[in-house]
């Protein structure tokens, strides 16, 4: 099984710890992980802004870096979703996996050596939840499930809680966060407030972009609550 780690552009630049945790976690589980060095971006920022026609260079670069792998695993639901839906190569579309999805569905992980004795608020990012189906959604009449919760149940000491309106969007939305700044921020503030009501220490989720947005809001209001990607918890000794 040839596995490559896809590190989205802004994770590479601003959240290297998320990529490091992903790498270490996969290695702990006995996977030999390759990290193609010339990878950049999945193309989503352009495509969701209406410029899917300009992503050709991006798509080609992604293909060059990742065509040789059976599994392309990345720590952000949104970028993975974009690749699954829009990358021109069928091979790529079929090989990309969000990391929790990979751990649960492919590796079928049953135990972890992780320990994280804290109370966390679990943030369900929309693209992972509604389209990658990482967890059930309140819109549908369906039995509840969550791959994220399934993994957290393997971590010692962690207590996770959901905010009111468990699956409301945080308002990041890609370029929406700047083009519709007022609504984006208001949504983020509301999301953060409902997490804070639960007296948590961390907001944890599977999509770094949502976390970056909520982190910006938490810091601006001077809150001590931090954000963490779920892999940082799963990899925490």
């Amino acid at each position: 099984m040839r596995v490559a780690l896809f590190v989205p552009c802004y994770v590479d630049q601003f959240y290297p710890q998320v990529a490091i945790a992903s790498l270490e976690l996969l290695e702990k589980l006995g996977i030999e992980v390759h990290v193609p060095s010339n990878q950049t971006c999945c193309g989503q920022p352009m495509a969701n802004s209406g410029f899917a026609s300009s992503t050709e260079g991006c798509d080609t670069n992604f293909f060059k870096n990742f065509e040789g792998f059976d599994y392309i695993v990345g720590p952000t639901g949104s970028c993975i979703l974009h690749l699954k839906e829009h990358h021109p190569s069928e091979k790529i579309r079929k090989s990309v996996f969000e990391i929790c999805e990979f751990l649960v569905d492919v590796l079928k992980v049953k135990s972890l050596s992780a320990n994280f004795p804290h109370k966390i608020g679990l943030h369900q990012s929309c693209h992972g939840q509604r389209f990658l189906r990482l967890s059930s959604m309140t819109e549908l009449n369906e039995a509840p499930f969550s791959k994220l919760a399934q993994l957290l149940d393997l971590v010692k000491g962690v207590e996770y809680v959901y905010p009111e309106r468990a699956d409301e969007c945080c308002g990041f939305g890609g370029t929406f966060c700047v083009t519709e700044e007022a609504v984006s921020v208001r949504m983020g503030q509301d999301r953060v407030e409902s997490h804070l009501k639960n007296e948590i220490e961390f907001i944890v989720g599977g999509d770094t972009s949502c976390l970056m947005h909520m982190e910006g809001i938490l810091k601006r209001k001077g809150s001590k609550v931090q954000v963490k990607h779920i892999v940082e918890i799963l990899n925490h000794a």
Binding site: V11, F14, P16, V185, E215, I217, K219
Partner: peptide, 21 residues
């Protein structure tokens, strides 16, 4: 417009790729 009501993320010393190298 990001900064108007949000802080920017901390800029780490090095990127993941440079750490990995």
């Amino acid at each position: 417009p990001w900064f108007k009501q949000r802080e920017m993320p901390d800029a780490p010393k090095e990127s993941f790729q440079s750490w990995y190298k």
